[in-house]
Amino acid sequence: MITTQIKSELQHSSSLINKATDKFTSDPRHYQITFLLIFLLFGITNLGWEVEQFKFIVTFITCLSTQAVFTYFTNKDFNSLKSALISSLSLCLMFKTNEMGTIFLAGFLSIASKFMFRINGKHIFNPTNFGIIITILLSGKAWISPGQWGSNGLLLLFIGLLGLTVLLRVKRLDTAFAFFITFVGLSFIRNVVYQGWPIDFFFHQFTSGTLLLFTFFMITDPVSTPSHKIARIVWSVLIGVVAFYMQHILFVNGAPIWALFILSPLTILFDKLFSANQFKWK
């Protein structure tokens, strides 16, 4: 009698766990949120980032409320708040400013760009990318700190690994690799083969967490990348080339982020040239 009761209790609880895990694994955005949160906490506890609670709070409130308002007046699919959560986390990780107004602007622009620059259900710009770049240009009071991650290989390996699991779920591995291989390959040819820098010089520049976050969490956003596989690869290679040029010839800080901003609108063109089924968050 008692054993059956325990059995049913166990079954019940295990089915609860199953349900929870199913729910978690049902949407790749859940992974993304978890991983970005881990990076943020890690940065604060181990990389000496300042705890800017107030900034974080403003970022989250701005992103989520903007998303909620826009969603209310459009498709009323409040599942999209998860995307806003990802945008806020990305902003907390990459975007630096001392002014609340600037944070508000970045948060608002990130989310609003999704609704304002939209063709056939696809975003012309990557939301966070758009928010960061436009706020830097408009306010002049914001910046990105590529140096904040230090250069510990192990950490970066894990950003990569965790990013990989997300990419497997959203099927955007091709985008990340096409970009990464192009960018790293061109840099290798220039720095090591041509200029003769030692190999640790070369590795040092790829230990920037900002680059890996960009590769695995930003450029691969399925809603702002071309839908066709070949188009996607060509598009990412182009971003790699432009990023390389900006970084090594023009000496622009955070070159990949600028390159993505410049080339994002090409997505629309590529989607016209190569037709394919569009990605939908589940």
Binding site: L47, G48, S145, P146, G147, Q148, W149, G150, S151, H204, Q205, S208, N253
Partner: peptide
């Protein structure tokens, strides 16, 4: 001013 290829810590 901060370094872009190393961490700048207070």
């Amino acid at each position: 001013v901060e370094t872009t290829n190393y961490r700048t810590l207070k």
